[in-house]
Structure formats: C-alpha cells, structure tokens
Amino acid sequence: MQNFKRKKPSDIILFALTWLSIGITAAVLVLVVGYVLINGIPFIRPSLFAREFTTQNQSLFPALIGTLMIVGLSLILAVPLGVFSAIYLVEYAKRGSRFVAIVRLTTETLAGIPSIVYGLFGFIFFGVFLGWGLSLMSGSFTTSIMILPLIMRTTEESLKSVPDTYREGSFGLGAGRLRTVMRIILPAATPGILAGVILAIGRIIGETAAIIFTLGNVARMPNNLFDTGRTLSAHMYALANEGTHPGEAHATAAVLLIVVILINALSSWIARFIRKES
C-alpha cells in the first residue's frame, strides 16, 4: 500500500527552513523585549514619575508627557492632511494624470529622506526662519512632515483595496461622490488607515535626531506650544549618553516599550470598534 504521508526530502528541508525563520524572528523579538524589561523594570521607582525632573530622581515623567504631546500634535496636523490628500489622489484625481504622478513621486521621495535631514530643515525653517525656536510647535510640525508620506501611502493603499463594487453600488443609488467617499469608502478603509497611523506613531515615538533639533532636549514639561521639552527617546538618549544613569535609561526604555504596546492595543481596539459600528 502506498503511504500518502511520506514526505519528500525537499518538503522536509522547506519545512525546517520555514520553522527556522519563524524561530529566529520570534527569538529576536523575545530577546529585545526581554532584555529591555529585565534590565529596566528593577529601576522603575515612583520617583521616576515625579512631576519635576531633578538630577536626583532622573524623572522620566516630563519626557512621557512631552512624547504624548508631540504624538498628539503631529497626528492632528498630519492625519487630516494625509488622509484627505490620499482621498483626492484615489477618488477624485484622474487616473494616470501628470499631477498625480508628481505628487506620488514627491511623497515617495519624502518617505526616503533620513530623519536628521528633517531635523535640520525643521530647525532652520520652523525654529530660525519662523522664529519658533526649540519648541513643541517646531517639533510637531517637523515630525508631522515626516509621517505625512507614510499616512498618505497607507491611506491610498487602503482606499484602493475597497472594492469598486461598493462605489458602483453607491453611485447606482444616486449618491454623489462626496457621500460615497464619506459614508461607504472611508468607513471600509478605516482599519487600514489606522494601521498606518499606528506605524506613524511608532515613527514619532522612536525619533530622536529630528526631535532634539526641533523640540530640544530640556528635561521639563512644556508650558505652552512654544516651549521646549523632550520625549522619552530623547530622554533615553541623554541618560545613556551621560553614562551616569544606565539603570534609569533602561527603565525609560521599558516604559517606552510599554507605552508603544498600550498605544497599539488602543488603536486596534478603536479599529475593532469602528468595524463593529459600520
């Protein structure tokens, strides 16, 4: 009797390679997360979350608030701009027009520029030319330019992945383009757009070079939009650079990681909620 279960050698090799890849990928993640948490968590103390930073407590609280402010402000600036630009490119502009091609080329180029270049530009344009100095405004405008291509790109992709049959169905009922986009296309594309927003948040949180150039790296909470401050990544950079508080640097890394995980969980919860609503 023929044994249907017998595998060819090539099958076994492929199987092993697949598992090896999964294993390595998972191991790297576990290693990084484990390293950060094991080294960081023992140093997390209540004094790290003191309202004011002093050289004694090395509080990361001002940086945590600074991070949330930068993320919030950048998203407020970049998400509407990116989403509506993408809507224009996908739903309104003529397919294959020259203008669209130029806009696409520009955004793709923007996406490939190193962040330090954004930092330098932000410093010179927002900080010096507009006179905003090292401030939340300079910082958030700079990071919002950085994430704009990312948001446009992911929004475009998710709008394109909405089947044309939805558009036909809506137009066929006598709905205009605006209503079709707002009521049918955008809700269907929201999970994809949110995935892009999560990536963008990750990019802002992880940014140091552009942030230090534009927001500055002063360990205090910004009092207003034109005040300077620091983010967690910049805080970590400063601590690690000084070399005097390696434990606190690790603790900051752990907190940063937890913040990222929380933001991702929140975003996917929002995505689920929106999907259920529509």
């Binding site: 939805y166 036909e168 066929g172 009922l173």
Partner: peptide
C-alpha cells in the same frame, strides 16, 4: 444623481455595503 435614482441598478456580483441589512436599505 437624479437620473440614477430613477433608473436603479443591480450588479453582476451581489455588492451589499459592509453595514447592517437595515442600513444597506436605508442608505438610498
């Protein structure tokens, strides 16, 4: 749009919107 309201259309592949039965009908 007024023309398409008067001349309704049903397509080759069923294309309900990704929403509830009620909202699908109420959309028009």
């Amino acid at each position: 749009n007024a023309l398409r309201k008067r001349v309704g259309m049903v397509f080759q592949k069923p294309n309900p919107f990704p929403m509830s039965v009620y909202d699908n009908i109420a959309y028009g």
